[in-house]
Design a protein around this nucleic acid. Structure first.
Lengths: 166, 166
DNA sequence: GCGGAATGGTTCGTTCATTGAACTTGGAGG
DNA sequence: CCTCCAAGTTCAATGAACGAACCATTCCGC
């Protein structure tokens, strides 16, 4: 882990999960994958992290079946897609407790144009949580300050999981 | 962070959240707090982690308003309680993808005795996610192997957030 | 097929966090 | 005042992250 390395001795599925996605940078990589980032260099530019660490993280994510490597692209697997509630939940928690300026990005249900609730459901359509593939990403009130190519591409509204165009 | 230290440059509420709860051990501490662990020595025995790190993590959690220190007890604040969906979501994700032996603990809606769904709702009662205070913790099919006093106390069914008895 | 650039990594020395043991502090009880 | 115990700090050693430099492979025009 970005941490020690594992949580041996912890008899808890949370610990198992954290061994996979609990290291530094890992959840930000997964988040970017939801946003449509797929290429090594795009992760690198957008996350502004050491190449060696990105390489290591992508490897362990592939190894554990969160991402799949297709040619030079890293794509979320089923297991990876099922992390969406966690990623979205943490982002909402951060926004509610530490986001003085409001969200940087809005997640909108593509079918009806409504912004989804923190619990992942659509206030208009009700019912089950909206799947990532049915979401669009729009820039929020405090949309980013970064001016790299990937950040700019992510600021144009687009559907989640579809590759960004740099 | 258990990691570098922060995610400066990341214009994302997820990064802000990870600066607070993304370090090694931190989410396990929060999990234990939900389970009813409150004292320094109990966290120490149960998590089997270095004292210095526990001390540091508890300090930053208090500093950021996730825990409140009451005498020698650390108790979840409102902000801390609102992390439940994330903690539960991650634990479920770990169980579904890496938990060959089934869950170690079951979370049961105290009102009706039904195990809650991965999305935090009660299949019987339906509707909104069940609040942590309305949950009971029961040992699951692969309940723990650890034999420290805290692990034993956590294996006896009890209501979430109520202090354990060692 | 050959040079040259772009992409996708690996290597390696430095810096910083975690680890674990030893030590200190601060109350509570007698 | 003295003892005990939980809580917390200090410190040397280990290991991970960092960042710059280097290597490999592919793609392109020629």
């Amino acid at each position: 882990m970005a941490l020690g390395k594992d949580y041996t001795g912890q008899d808890c599925t949370l610990a198992r999960a954290l061994e996979v996605v609990g290291e530094r940078w890992t959840l930000l990589i997964v988040r970017d994958a939801f946003y449509g980032v797929r290429r090594f260099s795009d992760f690198l530019v957008h996350l502004d992290m050491p190449r060696a660490v990105l390489s290591a993280r992508l490897s362990t994510l592939v190894e554990h079946g969160v991402l799949a490597k297709e040619g030079h692209e890293y794509v979320l697997t089923e297991a990876g897609l099922s992390l969406w509630p966690v990623v979205h939940g943490l982002a909402c928690w951060g926004e509610q407790n530490f986001g003085e300026l409001g969200p940087h990005r809005l997640f909108v249900h593509a079918d009806c144009g409504t912004r989804i609730a923190p619990d992942g459901t659509c206030p208009t359509c009700g019912g089950a949580p909206v799947r990532p593939a049915d979401l669009e990403i729009h820039p929020g009130p405090s949309a980013g300050l970064r001016d790299d190519a990937v950040s700019k591409a992510l600021r144009t509204p687009h559907r989640m999981l579809t590759p960004i165009e740099t």
